[in-house]
Write a protein that binds this DNA or RNA. Structure first.
Lengths: 351, 351
DNA sequence: GAAACGCGCGGTAACGTTCCCATGAAGCAG
DNA sequence: CTGCTTCATGGGAACGTTACCGCGCGTTTC
């Protein structure tokens, strides 16, 4: 930027200008004791005068703490992970640390490469959404580490932060029931995914509590994408049914895809079909109708993960597993079939 | 992670194990010349055996290049900036560098603080979307720097990368015209914004070329938000008009808000009103109808900015101002009123 | 056959910081 | 007045790496 690209002032420059040794200058600047108030003043003034800025590289070398943290997520472009990154960033900045952010694209090799880079950069620790199945790569990391997400459960020795799926499913189902949808159909992810099993287990538990036979729930699987949701919904609509259909999708993208399928079939959401999503991506707000969904607290998860990482770095092994609560984001994709409020629906239709 | 948190091996450990001096080990590992193939092999083997990983902090100290770059954007949560960040990230990784990412929240003080942090971290340079109006903070940065975005034009001495607004407006207007909308209304941002003036100037130029009087175009202003767009569209709809209304919004959020206003008024998009957006945010895909828009190449901008930054770092002052072309993202929010293809419209309605 | 040269390698300094220890002065008690 | 403690300060080492210089050996060149 500026025309001059000159040598940056070091603590020695400061010391010379203040007429003290570099040891004294360092003491003054780090705020340690055993120093005259007058000397400290002189040093601080000198530092300002020459525009001194502590060299974090050198500090890192000397102290073994670089003040940098790593974040490895699948894709910063994905709104959920952007949210996580933002939370992590804010928390790191608050503690005076910097964040090195990497996207792995769900690719184990890229993940391993990024972890290597982080190690070489001498980060103090890292927050990772593990995509690799092999314990190998991740265990080799050898630095303080906190995992994010459901897949983290494969690694019992590592602290992890994630959303509370059981609670989220409960919130979603409670809302569905309160709107009169007692036996919603489910659109789930591929059978290979751990998250699917957890989701389904939570649904079963909820059903048992409410004396509903889980077997009556229609279930369709699909990829965690718009297309996957669209296809799954097509199959659901092809099944014989009476009256209103309610669907709980395990992912907002699938929910949006399902919404498209409803439109494709010439039906209306929420009049004919109610859709509940899961994630809380911003796109859901602009769909028509707005997608009602159970929102994961991405930002909180990011913040919390960094906090756990600090504990890990300081060898305070307190929380090993943190599950953050999700909350309902009510928009317009659910019909209200409950006996308590049929007027609202009817009214809306007739005005 | 692992139970052991032991000292990391240094190049000296490698040298000892290979039975050479650390100079030789360094030569072998940096791939420089003047070394026997056999010795190099021995050193490399030794390095692998002890699990050696070069300490980038030390390298940075010695060489004055930390291999780290900074990225300061308003908000990583914003899809456009996430896209930029992703591009920057990928390009940095490709060059073996790491990216320190910060969000400024359009707050000049936060921006200044982040720039200070980057300087202390000894990054080799930074890519910044400048929010501060004052040249002061930014000029003080004193490191190689590339700006992103239209506001960068306030700083003539700094390289910048942005989208080519003139070209984008042209693409948008050409598409509108090709669909039979010759005199679209405009929804623009606040008068205070630089981007507004640029947008409007491009529209005028286009009109002059096509012998259209720019004065006939209806214009409404609003904040760059959904609500701003909604209000602006309300005002447009309140004006007397005959037949179909076409609108070019200067921002996707505003366009989505406009779409809502159309629905609020009991009208249909694209039957009664056509809407063209500008940005290319993913949410536009899930709106109904899908939002046709002129997409900014966020990822390319990020990549290109990092490339410029490398040039800046290497003192190759080649491109000072780079404008990246935008492209049309055709979805469903435009009616086709052109004489050339009325069959498609009619056909779609009758089948 | 001696000088010159190239090449592989080792020793050392330096990057900027902080921590430990030594030094000397001042204060204080015996 | 002496011996002890206290305290501000300075000197030096160390963190891990690489660049520079010099040394010895083998090869080439009149």
């Amino acid at each position: 930027m500026g025309p001059r690209r000159t040598r940056r002032p070091t603590i020695i420059d400061v010391a010379e200008r203040a007429g003290v040794s570099k040891s004294t200058a360092a003491r003054a600047l780090t705020g340690s004791s055993n120093i005259t108030e007058e000397t400290r003043d002189r040093v601080v003034k000198a530092a300002e005068a020459v525009g001194y800025e502590r060299n974090h590289l050198a500090v890192g070398m000397r102290s073994g703490r670089s003040g940098m943290l790593g974040l490895v997520i699948p894709d910063i472009t994905n709104p959920f992970w952007a949210d996580v990154a933002r939370g992590a960033q804010d928390r790191a900045v608050k503690a005076g640390a910097s964040l090195l952010v990497f996207s792995s694209d769900w690719n184990p090799e890229a993940e391993a490469a990024h972890l290597r880079t982080l190690r070489r950069a001498r980060v103090d620790g890292a927050v990772v959404n593990p995509v690799s199945d092999s314990f190998e790569d991740l265990d080799r990391f050898g630095l303080p580490c906190v995992f994010i997400g459901s897949s983290a459960e494969r690694f019992p020795d590592v602290s992890s932060v994630g959303s509370d799926i059981a609670q989220a499913v409960r919130v979603g189902l409670d809302h569905l029931v309160s709107r009169g949808h007692v036996t919603p159909a489910l659109i789930l992810g591929p059978k290979s995914r751990l998250a699917r099993a957890r989701f389904l287990r939570a649904v079963h538990e909820h059903c048992v509590e409410r004396d509903v036979d889980p077997a009556v729930l229609a279930i369709e699987d699909g990829e965690y994408t718009v297309e996957g949701g669209r296809e799954a919904m097509k199959r659901l609509l092809a099944q014989p049914r009476v009256g209103h259909l309610a669907v709980f999708a395990a992912n907002d993208m699938m929910a949006l895809g399902a919404m498209m399928a409803v439109r494709d079939a010439g039906l209306d959401c929420p009049r004919d079909v109610s859709i509940l999503g899961f994630d809380g991506i911003p796109s859901g707000e602009f769909a028509w109708p707005g997608l009602t969904t159970v929102a994961k607290p991405g930002r909180d998860i990011g913040e919390r993960a960094i906090e756990c990482l600090f504990d890990e770095i300081d060898h305070k092994p307190e929380h090993r597993r943190v599950y953050m609560p999700c909350r309902l984001l009510e928009r317009g994709s659910l019909a209200d079939l409950s006996a308590a409020a049929p007027k609202r629906m009817a009214g809306a239709g007739r005005i």
